[in-house]
Every structure is written in C-alpha cells, then in structure tokens.
Design a protein around this nucleic acid. Structure first.
Length: 152
DNA sequence: GCCAACGTTGGC
DNA sequence: GCCAACGTTGGC
C-alpha cells in the first residue's frame, strides 16, 4: 500500500464534488512525472490526500483512494477537450490516469501553513521549493504526521 | 545538445 | 494581479 497527494483547484473540482460523484477519472494531468506516478506507482486501494490548491485556504481537505489501475486518459483523444493532445494515439497513448474514489472529508482543512510548521515534513515534496507537481508520493510517516493534525 | 522564449503552476 | 520556479518547445 502506498500513499499519495493529489491537488485540485476547488473552483474546478473540490472535495465536495468528489463526495457527490463518489468516483472520478483524474483527467487532464499533462506532466510526465505526475503521469508516471499514476501509471507506475499507483495501485487500487492506495491512500490519497485530497489537496485544494490555488484558493483562499490551500491545504488537505479530505481522503480519497485510488480506485483503478492506470488507463489512457480519454480527453487526450477528444478534439473538443482542453486536454486534447494531437500527438497521442490510441495505439500509443501518452497520458494515463486512474479513478479516484471519495473516502471522507476531514473534520477541518489542514492548511499548507500548518504543514510548513512541522519539522517532520521538511522533506515532503509538496513543501519543497518550486514544487508544482499535481500528483506526488507521500510516505507513511508523512501521511500519519499530516492526519494527526486533524483533531489537534 | 544548447538555450532563449514561452506557458503554466500556485502561493501570496 | 504579481512573480518565482520550472517544464516544454523549437531554432540553431
């Protein structure tokens, strides 16, 4: 079992949206490193910290779960999609995704500000300078450390 | 293969 | 809205 963090802009797709639809294909990732994490790293059942970015209060807002093996992102073949990639083919798809399933909302947002204050998370890639990955790995100690803040 | 230009991310 | 950081593109 592995652990991950996935970012989403709540204006576009929030934890409440995920709670409503229950399961969502994670379309639109167009970064090779993030793709590789989904394609090569993720397995059904892996834990996911759901993170709200580019908003008033950035932070971890919920827990989700990887709900499928990786498969080709259908939006890369859709000419009408913002994520259309003319260089990708069905025989050799460039972009992969997984389904993400809702588990629960946190009792409160664990803010980015709080995470930065924890010495234990110095090595957490979310907090490293210039990090822009929208899908990134979380170690078990980091996972436990972050979630221990929920009821603090 | 280098690197400048450009686009995007995301916190503030 | 600003801007730092960083990935990608494309000319050479």
């Amino acid at each position: 079992m592995h652990y991950w963090l996935m970012k989403s802009e709540p204006d576009a797709f929030s934890i409440d949206d995920l709670a409503r639809v229950r399961t969502e294909p994670w379309t639109g990732v167009r970064n090779y490193q993030a793709r590789n994490f989904m394609r090569d790293g993720m397995r059904p059942g892996d834990g996911v910290l759901f993170y709200h970015s580019s908003c008033a209060e950035p932070g971890v807002v919920g827990i989700a779960e990887v709900a499928s093996e990786a498969y080709p992102d259908p939006t890369q073949f859709d000419r009408k999609s913002d994520y259309f990639d003319p260089a990708s083919t069905t025989e050799n798809p460039r972009w992969m995704l997984v389904d993400v399933a809702f588990k629960r909302k946190l009792k409160r947002t664990i803010t980015l500000t709080e995470l930065k204050e924890l010495p234990k998370l110095d090595e957490f890639s979310l907090l490293r300078r210039g990090n822009r990955l929208s899908v990134l790995p979380v170690t078990k100690p980091q996972w436990d450390c972050i979630l221990s803040l929920e009821t603090r």
